[in-house]
Every structure is written in C-alpha cells, then in structure tokens.
C-alpha cells in the first residue's frame, strides 16, 4: 500500500522536493547547531572556534542548497552565488592584507 502512495506522490512531485527531505535537513541543522554549542561549552578556545568555523559553513550550505532550492535550480544561480561570495572573499582578503602589513 505504501508503495502505491509513494509512486503516486512521486508522479505528482516532479519538481517539488518532499516534506521529508526538508525535515531531514532541519534535523541535520539542529544536530550541527548542538555540535557547535557543545564544542564551545566543553572545549572553549581553539577547538570550539575551529568547530564553529567548519560547521557553520556546512549549515549555511544546507540552507542554501535545500531550503533556498539552489540544488534544484539551474547552474547559473549557483555560479551567481559563488561569484558574489568570491567578491566578498576578495574584499575580505584585501582588507586583511592591509590590516596585517600596515
């Protein structure tokens, strides 16, 4: 019976992502948040900051890809997004070079 429903649902949601996927992404985001918070509480300092610096971009990527649909859009949207990030990266890089070697 569940097979029939699944098949019917699949037929219907050609371009629509299932609610289940979004719930899984949400659970993933909660787990990653818990990891970041736990690391900052139990290993304050370098490890805590390091975990936050690795986990936070992963969380951002999950939101961008699934909630903001970038995974399902045309590639041009991903390229546009990465270009905007590259501009920000240049901005950040040049400022830090200025600040470090002033």
């Amino acid at each position: 019976m569940s097979d029939v429903t699944a098949a019917a649902a699949h037929e219907e949601e050609h371009h629509i992502v299932s609610d289940g996927t979004f719930i899984l992404v949400w659970i993933g985001l909660l787990v990653l948040t818990a990891m970041t918070v736990a690391a900052s509480v139990y290993y304050p300092g370098k490890i805590g900051v390091g975990v936050a610096m690795i986990v936070t971009p992963i969380k951002a990527a999950l939101i961008l890809m699934y909630f903001m649909h970038l995974k399902y859009e045309k590639k041009i949207f991903v390229i546009m997004f990465l270009s905007a990030m590259a501009i920000f990266g240049v901005f950040l890089g040049l400022t830090f070079i200025d600040y470090l070697y002033r």
């Binding site: 970041t36 936070t56 951002a60 939101i63």
Partner: peptide, 15 residues
C-alpha cells in the same frame, strides 16, 4: 536565518 547562523558563533559562542 542564514545570517543569524553566522551571528550565533561570532557573538554568543566566543569565549
């Protein structure tokens, strides 16, 4: 939401 995700470690989890 995305911006808040960055604000959390930068302000609340830095100590």
């Amino acid at each position: 939401d995305l911006i808040w995700i960055f604000l959390l470690p930068l302000f609340y989890l830095t100590n």
